[in-house]
Simulated assay, not measured.
Amino acid sequence: MERTARIDTAPADAPLPDGLPDLAHLLDGMPGQSRRQDPQARVAPPAAAAEAAPAAQDRLRPVRPWRLLPTRLLPTPRATPFTFAYAVVLAVTSLVATYADPAVVQALQQGSSTDVAHLVRHPVLVLVGSALWIAGGVLSPYTLGFLLVLTALERRVGGLRAAGVFLCGHVLATLATEVPVGVAVATGQLPDTSLHRLDYGISFGVAAGVGALAGLLTPWLRWPLLAWVALIVGQDLLSSYDPLTSWGHAIALTIGIATWPRLRRAVSRTRH
Rank of each mutant, 00 (worst) to 15 (best):
residue 78 R to H: 13
residue 247 W to P: 00
residue 137 G to A: 09
residue 120 V to T: 11
residue 123 P to Y: 01
residue 217 L to S: 12
residue 13 D to F: 09
residue 218 T to C: 03
residue 83 T to F: 06
residue 260 W to S: 09
residue 203 S to M: 00
residue 184 A to P: 03
residue 197 R to A: 15
residue 27 L to G: 10
residue 42 R to Q: 08
residue 205 G to Y: 09
residue 72 R to C: 00
residue 42 R to N: 00
residue 16 L to P: 11
residue 136 G to I: 04
residue 36 R to Y: 14
residue 145 G to L: 04
residue 37 Q to E: 15
residue 7 I to D: 10
residue 22 D to C: 05
residue 29 G to R: 01
residue 237 L to K: 01
residue 140 S to I: 07
residue 113 S to R: 06
residue 179 V to M: 07
residue 29 G to V: 02
residue 174 T to A: 06
residue 96 V to Y: 07
residue 158 G to Q: 06
residue 194 S to K: 05
residue 86 Y to P: 00
residue 178 E to I: 05
residue 187 T to G: 11
residue 102 P to E: 08
residue 257 I to T: 04
residue 132 L to A: 13
residue 131 A to M: 08
residue 233 V to E: 04
residue 123 P to V: 04
residue 272 H to G: 15
residue 150 L to Q: 14
residue 158 G to V: 04
residue 211 G to P: 10
residue 230 A to N: 04
residue 191 P to L: 05
residue 245 T to V: 15
residue 191 P to N: 00
residue 70 P to A: 03
residue 202 I to P: 06
residue 171 V to A: 11
residue 184 A to M: 11
residue 112 S to E: 12
residue 88 V to Y: 06
residue 156 R to E: 13
residue 141 P to V: 07
residue 201 G to P: 02
residue 48 A to M: 07
residue 252 A to L: 03
residue 271 R to L: 14
residue 73 L to D: 01
residue 229 V to C: 14
residue 161 R to C: 01
residue 126 V to A: 06
residue 69 L to F: 06
residue 235 Q to T: 09
residue 206 V to R: 04
residue 172 L to K: 00
residue 145 G to Q: 07
residue 81 P to E: 09
residue 23 L to A: 07
residue 158 G to F: 04
residue 153 L to V: 08
residue 30 M to G: 00
residue 182 G to H: 11
residue 250 A to N: 02
residue 214 A to K: 12
residue 90 L to S: 09
residue 182 G to P: 08
residue 264 R to V: 12
residue 167 L to R: 00
residue 110 Q to M: 11
residue 130 S to R: 03
residue 43 V to H: 10
residue 226 L to K: 14
residue 157 V to H: 05
residue 176 A to F: 09
residue 268 S to T: 12
residue 79 A to D: 13
residue 153 L to A: 11
residue 194 S to T: 06
residue 134 I to S: 03
residue 154 E to R: 12
residue 180 P to M: 10
residue 159 G to N: 02
residue 39 P to I: 02
residue 80 T to W: 05
residue 107 A to K: 07
residue 110 Q to D: 12
residue 61 R to F: 09
residue 182 G to N: 13
residue 244 L to Y: 10
residue 19 G to C: 02
residue 123 P to N: 08
residue 252 A to M: 05
residue 183 V to S: 06
residue 65 P to N: 05
residue 196 H to A: 15
residue 81 P to K: 10
residue 269 R to G: 02
residue 245 T to P: 01
residue 22 D to Q: 03
residue 48 A to E: 10
residue 158 G to C: 04
residue 4 T to D: 14
residue 217 L to K: 02
residue 152 A to L: 13
residue 84 F to Y: 15
residue 198 L to F: 09
residue 84 F to M: 12
residue 38 D to Q: 15
residue 52 A to S: 08
residue 77 P to Q: 11
residue 234 G to D: 08
residue 168 C to D: 13
residue 152 A to S: 13
residue 26 L to H: 11
residue 252 A to H: 01
residue 229 V to W: 13
residue 131 A to G: 07
residue 57 Q to H: 14
residue 217 L to E: 15
residue 47 A to G: 01
residue 91 A to G: 15
residue 189 Q to L: 12
residue 111 G to N: 11
residue 50 A to C: 00
residue 234 G to P: 08
residue 231 L to F: 12
residue 5 A to D: 15
residue 231 L to P: 04
residue 89 V to K: 10
residue 244 L to H: 10
residue 147 L to T: 01
residue 254 T to K: 01
residue 205 G to T: 08
residue 95 L to A: 15
residue 47 A to V: 05
residue 88 V to H: 01
residue 139 L to W: 06
residue 129 G to P: 07
residue 12 A to T: 11
residue 72 R to Q: 13
